[in-house]
Design a protein around this nucleic acid. Structure first.
Length: 267
DNA sequence: AGAATTACCTGAGCGC
DNA sequence: TGCGCTCAGGTAATTC
């Protein structure tokens, strides 16, 4: 389940390997992802070099000069760099072959991912145009969050998971951030005080940065990938005890998403 | 406009 | 052993 930290770690891992490299080929085995993978990639990409790899929310953007390769890992997707002779396995839907004998392989059992191509400005792409501020930049702040929560009656957790409010906060880090901020996930967003917004914005940034810093959330070895070896305070601990007070954690569903919190520590 | 619901997909885990 | 069920969850589309 790649969330923003996993996507960022992937970006940082791929940058030094791929920037300056040219595509020599594309092997498309399964095109039916969340959006169809355009077959034209095989004609477009060869000869183009990767100038940079950027990230917007959970989307990876490979800058190819005349256009962009847009990749989303969905729920179960990941990208691996392999020798170009490595035989594909199950769910290895797509390979990008590079001029140094490496291939970038897209693997995604649930096919919730996206691989597509576009030209023009990322700001204008329909998948990217409405994404809110990046939580790791100054465009996301307590002040912003205070404004964004005014007159909003939805549950706070659903609001911070709304990508048009803030980019890239998924279920895991929404649960974790609210626990650390001491705020109940089912609070109506509009009831947050200015001070609570300041705390929450800082905590969202902190949990994401810590996860990126650990770098271990997306550990990629030869042919094994493990997401989230670290321990979470509340996520996945529905029947466990609160690390703060020892009381039993509460598990509810918000927007059909598993939501875990502490009735004592979160107000 | 905002909020709630649904669709997409496969593997793991469970009860029987 | 295996069937059928539920759950996991990002996000766009749809509906209210």
């Amino acid at each position: 389940m790649p969330e923003l930290p996993e996507v960022e770690v992937t970006r940082r891992r791929l940058m030094p390997e791929l920037v300056g490299r040219s595509f020599t080929g594309v092997v498309l085995r399964v095109a039916k992802l969340r959006l169809p993978v355009p077959a034209e990639l095989a004609e477009i990409l060869p000869g183009l070099a990767v100038r940079s790899i950027e990230r917007r929310g959970k989307y990876l953007l490979f800058d190819c000069g005349c256009g962009w390769l847009l990749v989303h890992l969905g729920m179960t997707g990941f990208l691996r760099l392999l020798r170009s002779s490595t035989p594909p396995g199950k769910h290895d839907h797509l390979d990008f072959i590079f001029d140094n004998g490496q291939l970038l392989r897209f693997h995604d059992p649930r096919k919730f991912g996206i691989v597509t191509w576009f030209t023009g400005s990322p700001h204008d792409h329909p998948l990217l145009a409405d994404i809110g501020p990046e939580p790791l930049t100054d465009s996301f702040s307590g002040e912003y969050l205070f404004t964004a929560t005014r007159k909003r009656n939805c549950a706070l957790k659903q609001l911070i998971m709304n990508s048009s409010v803030v980019a890239g906060v998924g279920n895991i880090y929404a649960n974790e951030a609210l626990f650390r901020a001491g705020i109940r996930p089912d609070r109506a967003a509009g009831t947050l005080t200015h001070q609570e917004c300041m705390v929450l914005a800082g905590v969202i940034r902190a949990v994401l940065e810590e996860s990126i810093g650990e770098g271990s959330t997306c550990r990629v070895a030869e042919d094994t990938v493990a997401y989230y070896p670290q321990n979470f305070s509340v996520y996945g601990r529905g029947s466990g005890e609160c690390s703060g007070c020892g009381n039993r954690l509460e598990e509810i569903r918000l927007g059909n998403r598993s939501t875990v919190f502490c009735l004592t520590c979160q107000k």
